[in-house]
Design a protein around this nucleic acid. Structure first.
Length: 103
DNA sequence: ATCCTGACCTAGC
DNA sequence: AGCTAGGCCAGGA
């Protein structure tokens, strides 16, 4: 589906040290309410390594926990390695690390 | 083609 | 402020 391609493209466009929410990715894909589809798209994750799924968090800033690349702990570690501070409850400060696409 | 499920989001209580 | 219910998009049986 083209929708998935859009999701992967947008997620790949997220810079290092920034995170994005499912809703925002869905909105950029053209369907603001397709957040579930976004999660599903990352769930299948056909290109691990190319698609930084660890930079995708939910609206509350918490890591989803779907972990399609190893585990939520790895996700937390990856975010910390990129400069994103992750809370002990697997939460990211969206106020500081939320990446907003401004074309 | 229809029904159920899923890494979500919004609205109502 | 926290929890529950409903809805939207796509995929699989």
């Amino acid at each position: 589906m083209n929708f998935y391609d859009n999701v992967y493209r947008i997620v790949s466009q997220i810079p290092k040290g920034k995170v994005m929410t499912y809703g925002q990715v869905a909105a950029l894909c053209g369907s603001p309410k397709a957040s579930r589809a976004v999660g599903y798209a990352l769930h299948v994750n056909p290109q691990p390594g190319v698609i930084p799924c660890h930079r995708i968090v939910n609206r509350h800033g918490y890591l989803s926990g779907g972990f399609a690349f190893g585990g939520i702990d790895v996700q937390k570690l990856l975010l910390e390695q990129e400069g994103v501070f992750v809370d002990d409850e697997y939460r990211v400060e969206l106020d500081r690390f939320l990446f907003c696409m401004n074309f």
